[in-house]
Design a protein around this nucleic acid. Structure first.
Lengths: 185, 185
DNA sequence: TAACCCATGTAAAAGGTTACATGATTTC
DNA sequence: GAAATCATGTAACCTTTTACATGGGTTA
């Protein structure tokens, strides 16, 4: 749906497929995911379309790398995509879809266990994202009100992640209380 | 990834493909989406696998319907899926992924417009979900602490949606303030 | 010397969207 | 008479996952 555009966006600096995968895992991992087996063919297609150009370069460690650079056309395609209106309401939240059908089991103990697992996963993710924000705080000039555009926008989405996780954890607590009330009225 | 399981979950009552689509649009629309062109073949595959059985039935209005029923095997498959551990961290949030790359445009006016569009979309969705919760309140026996299992679990996910939307709207406001400070320091 | 990281890919299958095709009934 | 709703599907295409395949260099 947008992997080619995301790759173009990450190619503000020249990078290999392997590095782009790492950029996904570091910068976008709470927003999107991509496997190497998807990234490599997508880069090839972007090159066929003239949005990137690549050339092999020797690597300090390991085999030769293929380094991709954004072309003028790639930049135009990226900007056109960035200027589109936001798409809201297409999210899929598998763990909630499953929860909403768990009445079928008629086992509130199982529901409680599920909610507790969700809660600890959220707490762990919040811990990690807090660490990410701390790195931002130490490394970004002008934090928080005079940052470089790339860092500023990246930081906005980190804040979104933290707020979502806080909300998710509070929701888990609300649910656990309601399960308790439902179990022993 | 789980459409067959979601359809099995929605088939607590016999239903046609068309009705299952409506159930998606009403009950799961803030968690998952599915098109009719995906639902019909998936039901056929579930029937081949012995998880549902179908028979044609006359319709009061319009053409003949094909009504599906869950089999004992379908029930077992569903329960096994419902007992799996929750999968967290696979969500894809396209509008945030795009925002995180919008530094490329170097145009805070565009960022502000994007955030305002997001905000009003969230406000509208919250309005709709509040309506859904009001229907729950009026129609569910024992609301909120002695509800039927299906309704109870469905309501938990409505609460999740409302909390997320509240968090998303607050986040938009935080971002808009930061954009303003970034623009005129 | 084993495990891990670097680095690139291909192939098959599954999941999902868009477009096409058809036709009856009800409501305005 | 037109538009919306009811109702079922197929075909082509795109996206994503899973599994397979290869091999050099670094570190414990």
């Amino acid at each position: 749906m947008s992997l080619p555009h995301l790759l173009l966006g990450l190619l503000s600096e020249p990078a290999s497929g392997y590095e782009l995968k790492q950029a996904f895992d570091q910068g976008l991992r709470h927003l999107w995911a991509a496997r190497l087996s998807q990234i490599y063919p997508t880069l090839q297609r972007l090159e066929e379309d003239g949005c990137v150009r690549s050339r092999p370069e020797p690597s300090s460690k390991g085999p030769e790398r293929r380094v991709y650079r954004r072309t003028a056309k790639g930049r135009r395609v990226l900007h056109r995509w960035l200027e589109e209106d936001p798409v809201v309401g297409a999210e899929r939240i598998a763990y909630l879809a499953r929860l909403s059908l768990m009445g079928e089991l008629d086992d509130l103990g199982r529901t409680r266990a599920y909610l507790l697992q969700l809660r600890s996963a959220f707490v762990e993710r919040r811990r990690v994202l807090n660490g990410v924000e701390a790195i931002w705080f130490h490394s970004a000039h002008g934090f928080p009100d005079a940052m470089e555009p790339d860092l500023f926008h990246g930081h906005l989405t980190v804040r979104a992640g933290l707020r979502r996780l806080d909300a998710a954890i509070e929701w888990c607590d609300e649910c656990l209380e309601r399960v308790a009330r439902q179990e022993s009225p």
